[in-house]
Design a protein around this nucleic acid. Structure first.
Lengths: 324, 324
DNA sequence: GGAAAAACGGCACACGTTTTCCGGCACTGA
DNA sequence: TCAGTGCCGGAAAACGTGTGCCGTTTTTCC
């Protein structure tokens, strides 16, 4: 089991060159003949050589590791973002490590110390809320994803929530709906407020509550009492939308024939399990992760970006508006 | 922003000793006077010294990093396990990195190469299925969690699914239910089969389907036709149980008054959103992670364990059996 | 007071890679 | 033939920490 690790000196010996030369050959640096490079590469392949990251890190300063710092313990947001980050980074042979702060500032501090100590090349900061957050103080390249930094000099990538909400409305209007209501989460959540503000031409005021199915059901009753003639309900989350659908079905109101419903987030476990499956706005978190990773790579390469980049969300139409 | 990193030589200089001595003082090794140790510690604290993991790794061979290799892309299982692992490891100042193989053997291989190259101290392997899995071939300590290794010489920690299922049945029986049915996932899933086998004294055969709410609803119809007198339905997952509850409510059958329902997994987003909230069997994944981490620490310290450790699951009673 | 023993701390090297600097060789042109 | 010029590749230092060995100082005991 314990095979002796093969070092660059072994490769060099096999290729008949010095360690330094082998390093240059493998990294495409320095001035070497094509023939020598090839010989070293073959030797490395033959021995199955993988450079030891420890030595490399110490020598070059780079650890080829990037951290994803998140406050989203559930992984609902951070996992897709991490996938996107990895997509971009793994091509460059960088590794991604996930650090869950559990929303504990102390834990965040301790993570940051640890990350700096282990010399990560950069950090992507994300969360489960879209509220701008105070920047972290580290002497490293940092990119904020999903939740922007309050410092405009930092680089942030976020979802254009207003535009996303607008696409939902437009979708409903294109289907001929005219009396659209909005049910969403807490009024002190930026994502709720932003989405609500983008909802134009609503019937009545947006209904703020919490992000639960129960609130969706409750709001449905409320809504039908005050606005019995609504023909569409646009919701601030898939959970709310699912609650709305459930309640409408219980009341014998057909979705979408009588009332169309849209969700938000495109969370598969909710959007697909709902009856009917929900038309929803996909946050495109993987794309968010990819863009964040690209910005981070640039910053690591010495070309930091600044300011906030807003990415479009994408409407995913399903039966809750289109019907079967 | 870019504060020059403080090195051990700086600490040593401030304390008036050599670098080697400072190292010994901070690591409680070597033979030093208590006074010297204290002086060095104070100097380190004053300078905010954090040892550079890169140098340490190269020198001592330890990287103080452990990887969690998972096939569970959703994070449903791996995130709680990771929390448990971190609980144990962070006390020892070890970091945990999450690697999602996305069920791709190639990706798994590439991760393993990378992990070995970066010299992690050990690996916890987990997945989203409980099927025993082929061991990974690395010259490192490894512990398998949730899904055991097929090699009995490896150390594995899994959930005692049979006992967990049995507690659900006992709970129902204690509540006076005698005609209990079982609805679960695919017959080729070990977790479905194990749980089903532990269900004794059932009315009829277990119903195998898939892990969806839709199957739960469908199975309910099937069941009520063949066994109209069931007074409890024990389900193989919370999703199935939620579907069962929904269908029963639609049919006007009271839960739990007429028919009690139990879920499995205690997945909050399902178990709590269900109407009524589900009595479920908690897998205790954090505990699983903690135990796996302890075994891994032992293995890293040179005392590897062997064989499979089965951890009990825990019944969480809620309204779907107890009522309001 | 002297010698042996114990306590203490410094020196130097190891870890594996990258990178800088420099010397050697071949080739060119005079 | 010799100086000059490029191209190649080797030697060695550097990165920051841990540690074995050994010399020095202090203590202890007779």
């Amino acid at each position: 089991m314990k095979r002796p690790a093969v070092r660059i000196t072994d490769v060099a010996a096999l290729a008949g060159v010095s360690a330094g030369t082998a390093s240059k050959a493998l990294n495409n640096t320095g001035q070497l003949s094509q023939d020598t490079r090839e010989r070293v590469r073959r030797a490395a392949a033959q021995l199955g050589f993988t450079p030891d990251v420890r030595g490399r890190a110490l020598s070059s300063g780079r650890t080829f590791t990037v951290a994803l710092l998140t406050t989203d313990s559930s992984g609902r947001f951070s996992i897709p973002i991490m996938r996107g980050v990895e997509d971009v980074l793994s091509a460059g042979e960088l590794a991604t490590v996930l650090c869950d702060t559990r929303d504990d500032p102390l834990r965040e501090q301790s993570y940051l110390r640890s990350l700096v100590a282990r010399g990560v090349d950069g950090i992507v900061v994300t969360g489960r809320r879209t509220e701008p957050r105070p920047p972290i103080d580290v002497p490293l390249p940092v990119v904020y994803a999903l939740a922007a930094s309050t410092d405009p000099a930092d680089a942030s990538v976020i979802v254009d929530d207003a535009a996303g909400a607008a696409t939902a409305i437009k979708h409903l209007q294109a289907l001929g709906r005219t009396r659209i209501a909005h049910v969403t989460g807490p009024a002190d959540h930026r994502s709720a407020v932003e989405r609500a503000q983008a909802m134009t031409a609503l019937v009545g005021e947006p209904l703020f509550g919490d992000w639960s199915e129960q609130w969706g059901r409750q709001a449905t009753d409320l809504l039908l009492r005050t606005h019995p003639d609504v023909d569409a309900i646009s919701c601030g989350s898939d959970q709310i939308a699912r609650g709305v659908c459930d309640r409408l079905r219980e009341l014998g109101r057909a979705v979408p024939a009588e009332i169309a419903v849209t969700g938000y987030d495109n969370w598969p476990v909710m959007a697909l399990a709902s009856r009917p499956p929900l038309t929803s706005v996909d946050l495109r978190l993987e794309e968010l992760g990819r863009r964040a990773a690209q910005l981070l790579l640039d910053a690591i390469a010495g070309n930091p970006h600044h300011g906030v980049l807003e990415l479009p969300a994408q409407l995913v139409p399903r039966e809750s508006t289109l019907g079967p």
